[in-house]
Design a protein around this nucleic acid. Sequence first.
DNA 1: CCGGGCCGTCTTATGAGATT
DNA 2: AATCTCATAAGACGGCCCGG
Length: 257
Amino acid sequence: MSDAESFEPLIRNILTGPGVDLSTVSAKRVRKQLLALAPSLTEESLKAIKDDVDAVITRVYSEVKEQADESEHVDEDQEEEEEEAEQPPKKKAKKDRPSSDEVYAQKLAQELNGHSTRKSKSSSSTPRKGTSKSAKSAATIDSDDEAEGSKPTKKRKRVKKEKEPGDPSAPAKGGFAKEYNLSEPLADVLSVSKLSRPQVVKQLWVYIKGNTLQNPENKREILCDDKLRLVFNVDKIDMFKMNKVLGDHLTAPEEAS
DNA sequence: CCGGGCCGTCTTATGAGATT
DNA sequence: AATCTCATAAGACGGCCCGG
């Protein structure tokens, strides 16, 4: 039983999805989304395992909430440092310390932009320069050292964090956060009409996973179902190509001017 | 002045380094 | 020596930012 368990990834995705407010989300809502994301699920079958699903939702909710908690917790001593919500598994996330460090790396990256042309991704073959973990972060940090040493004067503290309180409803969608209008076929697949590109990709994968549309032989290949076929116009598509075609389904929201 | 690099987002294969 | 782990790459996108 408990097919409910098999939906855990999906549920987790929903709970961590775009625009999900943990403080207001309800199991009911999650169930509804789950229904939309997993076509294999019908109202009846869902109802049949509702209890199990609810249990899973509750569990995932707790985990997600805990993470969110830590995220906003961030104070106490320093605003950074450990957030490691129990990470017993040795899987170690590649992104060791996200949050502050990541943001930090961001700024650093920006400034080391035109610095030395070393950037981490040199090419293939033997790119890894570091040796240990988080080469990416390490690289950045590494640069940090150099940067600091090289140009001690200018502190990269530039940070321009002002939120620009202009649109409460439209939270400064800059860069990748910009929302697009989805084409009808795509909107039909994802059950939403507007999303930022990264979120579209994410939700798309949720859908793909939910329907096991990956070619088992080559998991980088997506086997289109009827809905996806309407989007991509092919029976199967490489996931990179998918990203490419995605552009055809994203239209910038009309400028209000 | 113009431009180029990078941010997040997804996935998996892969190769190469590291550890045992 | 053999196995294991893990970062990297590849695709595209809008905005930001400073450097040359």
